[in-house]
Design a binder for these strands. Structure first.
Lengths: 125, 125
DNA sequence: CAGGTATTGAGAACGCATTATCATTCACGA
DNA sequence: TCGTGAATGATAATGCGTTCTCAATACCTG
């Protein structure tokens, strides 16, 4: 029972509710019950990025993730166990002080890695 | 004039002299005059990483780079123009303060992006 | 100098993320 | 209800980084 163009709504809602950016694969899985195809997921996120609604987040050694573009400045935490990516608030700042002489700083990214709350719990048991 | 096993010396020296981590492709290019093959480059860096001499640096949206493992804690700057990666000294620290409740922090990475000294000069002209 | 072994380079093959293809299906107006 | 154009899903194809295959070559020992 796929509803055309309803897909965009579903993807947008999913990204808004998510605790961090999602990959195309994750979106496809989370919306599996709607019958959406992977190709459509890629089409919608690509369109969304071009339209400025979504932002593409490049993960080191992983697929591109997507998040709504209206979130305030933040960074990301990747779980080394479940590989999900979470938003984290705050920013160390003062990156211009780290920039070498003669270099021009344009942007910065901070990636934390470790275990998310769920996976940390598992480890304790 | 390829000298077998001399290749490892050449790769090691190159990585030591480089201002930052190099990709397999960059190593292959920089050592083109030695006649080294790309497959050999991959073999040597893989072996080096397994042996603990080199460290694999994952670049967002780019190929794995390699650097000597005996460098002190540092981060990286990627030039948006020439796409070379440079080491930068210093670290903002205090990442545990950014880590959400219940999460376990294992490591962190900081990526700065902008124009390197050479490419900044170009822009001025 | 001959034989055995490890290394090498070229190119094929692979894995993965992403994009293109195309027949089918759906929405919507006449 | 029928026709038309846009959207969709399955799958083939692509691009790129990396690994594998294998014949040729270099080193080493006797």
């Amino acid at each position: 029972m796929p509803r055309p163009s309803e897909h965009l709504v579903a993807v947008t809602d999913l990204l808004r509710q998510a605790p961090g950016p999602l990959s195309a694969h994750e979106i496809h899985e989370d919306l599996a019950h709607t019958g959406i195809g992977l190709a459509t997921v890629y089409r919608l996120v690509k369109r969304g990025v071009e339209a400025g609604q979504f932002i593409a987040v490049d993960i080191p050694n992983g697929p591109t993730h997507y998040e709504p573009s209206d979130r305030p400045h933040h960074h990301h935490f990747e779980c080394t166990s479940c590989h999900r990516v979470f938003d984290i608030e705050g920013c160390p700042g003062h990156f211009d002080e780290l920039t070498p002489e003669g270099f021009t700083l344009e942007s910065h990214e901070v990636f934390l890695r470790g275990r998310c709350d769920a996976c940390s719990e598992e480890g304790k048991a």
